[in-house]
């Protein structure tokens, strides 16, 4: 007969919790976040079109996660609430990735110690700056540790070999086309479930960018023909178009259909008294 031990050392307790969380995270496919010359790109292997691993938080801030969907979805919604409330009670420019990363870190840290089970998630909060030097990428792990990363981050099951390869092959100032091609090639080498190189096509990928050159809401998903062109070595397309897709409807996805539309209000400020650009 086994009995419950009366005393578990804190070291053992923390180790057990960390192992538990790590095991949960390692089951999933990896997500790569990497800077390119005009912004930050997010690449995930995700066949679902509806259950996203990468999402918009605010004008210049995005969120990427691996692990248990319900847990990181919960954190994503909390992040959108945090950002919108802060932007509403102060100003849009007062919402920063650093503030959000701190709030996430405290939350993950408290859950790791106090709740019966830690969150099995790893997340990235990224904010695009006006230059590549001002880009901020924060990586948060299940226990609430924060790391301020430069250039690129890999999360998920087989992160280490990809991280290794990126440290050799990523360099600042890559074009979006090159950055995506590199990320997709490395994700295809994800050791989870076989060592063969897999060719990941646009249908298995979730790709999004924070585009430095867009005003106001900078987050755009990339799909369809545009993603194919960016990933193709023969096609000269190496960046996202400056105008959104034509046609009425939501404009958060770029597919390459860019017959010129009118000025979108996505690009205006929301302070009601300054909603038009100064020179209008």
């Amino acid at each position: 007969m086994t009995s419950m031990p009366f005393y578990v050392s804190p070291e053992q307790l923390m180790k057990d919790r960390a192992d538990f969380a790590r095991k949960g995270i390692a089951r999933g496919r990896s997500v790569v976040v990497l800077g390119y010359d005009h912004g930050i790109a997010f690449v995930a292997e995700n066949p679902s079109r509806a259950l996203h691993k990468v999402s918009e938080i605010y004008d210049r801030i995005a969120f990427a996660a691996v692990g248990k969907y319900n847990e990181f979805e919960n954190l994503r919604v909390a992040g959108v609430r945090y950002a919108d409330l802060r932007g509403y009670s102060y100003d849009r420019s007062d919402v920063t990735a650093r503030g959000l990363a701190n709030a996430y870190a405290q939350t993950l840290g408290t859950v790791f110690i106090q709740e019966s089970k830690p969150y099995e998630v790893e997340i990235v909060v990224a904010e695009v700056g006006t230059t590549a030097e001002e880009d901020q990428i924060y990586r948060l792990t299940y226990d609430g540790s924060v790391a301020d990363e430069h250039g690129y981050v890999v999360m998920g099951g087989a992160a280490e070999p990809i991280d290794q390869a990126l440290s050799e092959r990523w360099h600042p100032g890559m074009t979006l086309g090159d950055a995506l091609t590199l990320a997709v090639e490395l994700l295809g080498k994800d050791g989870n479930g076989g060592d063969a190189d897999r060719q990941l096509g646009p249908a298995q990928l979730e790709v999004a960018v924070l585009d430095r050159n867009r005003p106001r809401r900078t987050f755009r998903r990339i799909a369809g023909p545009l993603l194919e062109r960016l990933l193709s070595r023969d096609d000269p397309t190496s960046d996202v178009p400056t105008v959104d897709d034509a046609g009425p409807g939501p404009h958060d996805v770029l597919t390459g259909d860019t017959s010129v539309t009118g000025d979108s209000t996505r690009e205006a400020a929301t302070n009601p008294q300054t909603q038009r650009p100064e020179d209008a």
Partner: peptide, 13 residues
């Protein structure tokens, strides 16, 4: 308002 310790308050989650 923030919950003690800077953690996101329960309403957020």
């Amino acid at each position: 308002t923030a919950a003690p310790g800077g953690r996101l308050p329960p309403a957020y989650l």
